[in-house]
Design a protein around this nucleic acid. Structure first.
Lengths: 193, 193
DNA sequence: CGAAAATTTGACATGACTCAACTGGAGTGG
DNA sequence: CCACTCCAGTTGAGTCATGTCAAATTTTCG
């Protein structure tokens, strides 16, 4: 079931042979988390890159002032990890927390490297999704500079309508780089425009 | 000479055999640009991913209000392109402009795909540098939210001391997401602190 | 039902922007 | 070598978007 979900997702990027699938299967480690649990906490080493089968997660950083900054959300068919920590085996900059009960497939860096070795196509696939993530991240930087708070919120709702529903408002405010109070004001303004 | 520079750079990430180098060489296309010239302009297709041998470039987006937003700089040993346009063959979101006379090696997407096929290690290398770029980009998003303008400027000067010298101040202001006037005020404040 | 979490509301504060004018090179051409 | 222009940087007055703080209200959920 879950396995099918994963292979179905993969097939949108690369076509694996029956044999390649057979190779891949033993590497897939399934894991469940409860709402509120952390996959990794800031300061720890992030040992997993997680593919989300089911659930909703956020990745956030707490700065010296104690303010939270949501960097990213992840839902079904997204990957999430603290990439820097995961690759370099360094302390994580981010917390990755489940906002709902979650169901994921997890890869360690050594697993992933083994897979890359055995199935070069899989490394292609990874390169491509990271390219996409990078492009999206730079677009977000530009949006943060070129749009005001109201426009950013509207762009967000349009870009991720699913998230707008599933995620507490104060986390969306944090993702947009504004306070929860101001987002509340903005939503009020939009509703009664 | 230039070739040595490039292989020397590559060797920091992957070790190529003599044969692999021989395969790679015919794919390397050298090109010079003059100060002020564009490698790609917003709206055009970006055909090249460019490795900078010599020079300084900026990547920026012009929004509907006509405001410029610098997304990235590139100097020696950096890669630069409009990644989205380059991969997907879609109109570029960004202008890539030379701030000095520049000397680059350029790869088209089909060249790159051929190289990936012939030398899988090269695709690994690419995956890794894009991972790094992605990590850096998300860190920048957090900095933009957690630091005020003065702190962002100080962080920038520390992170890229070379750039602080080589790039006009108003482009740094744009990179930091503030006006040139306000950066001027900040610098004045720092100097006479 | 009751407590904790999320959201809203309002008064006030401020970081950063806008607009406009001015200064000071760095060419350029006569 | 002077006059002119262009571009980058500076300065200052007034304004605005968004933040802070504090309290009230609503929602969620054990």
């Amino acid at each position: 079931m879950d396995q099918e979900l994963f292979f179905n997702y993969l097939s949108k990027f690369i076509s694996l042979t029956a044999n390649e699938k057979k190779i891949l299967i033993p590497f897939l480690k399934y894991r469940k988390y409860l709402k509120g649990q952390y996959i990794v906490q800031q300061g720890d080493i992030c040992n997993y890159n997680s593919f989300v089968l089911q659930g909703c997660l956020r990745t956030y950083h707490v700065d010296e002032r104690g303010h939270e900054h949501v960097v990213r959300f992840a839902i079904e068919n997204w990957w999430t990890t603290d990439m820097g920590s995961f690759i370099n085996n360094t302390p994580a900059d981010y917390n990755v927390q489940c906002l709902e009960n979650a169901n994921v497939i997890q890869f360690t860096i050594s697993t992933l490297n083994k897979i890359f070795d055995l199935i070069p196509k899989f490394e292609s696939f990874f390169r491509i999704i990271i390219q996409n993530a990078f492009v999206a991240s730079e677009k977000r930087i530009v949006r943060n500079f070129s749009l005001d708070a109201r426009e950013r919120y509207l762009a967000f709702s349009e870009l991720y309508p699913q998230l707008d529903q599933r995620v507490p408002q104060y986390m969306i405010a944090s993702y947009l780089g504004i306070t929860k109070q101001y987002l509340s004001e903005i939503r009020n303004l939009i509703a009664h425009k």
